[in-house]
Amino acid sequence: MDRSQLIRQLKTKIISTLNLPDIAPEDIADDAALFEPDGLGLDSVDALELVVMIEKDFGITVDDKDEAKTIFSSVGALADFITEKQK
């Protein structure tokens, strides 16, 4: 799976996991800040959901909060992290 396919898959998973029916994958820019108010504006409950989703679907555990901030900063950053881990 190339980067753009992974990004598309992640956007779909984020929408279904967080139950965001009003948002389409193309509405989320690859570099949009997921947890900033001017991006998707996600919160701590969403953060937990995403961390558990990555564990379940990709077998990758993220348990350091500072590391998590960088990994989940945008869909692009998350895709790069998953690609790196799966090498």
Binding site: S44, V51, D63, K65, K69, F72
Partner: peptide, 29 residues
């Protein structure tokens, strides 16, 4: 810090106890 809860998740996965205040709403859901 939306990821602060990860520390709580880590404690629970080690069969620990995490105390969370359930009455003071600051932000989030």
């Amino acid at each position: 810090d939306p990821f602060a809860m990860l520390a709580g998740l880590g404690i629970l996965r080690k069969n620990g106890v995490v105390s969370v205040h359930g009455d003071r709403y600051i932000a989030g859901k």
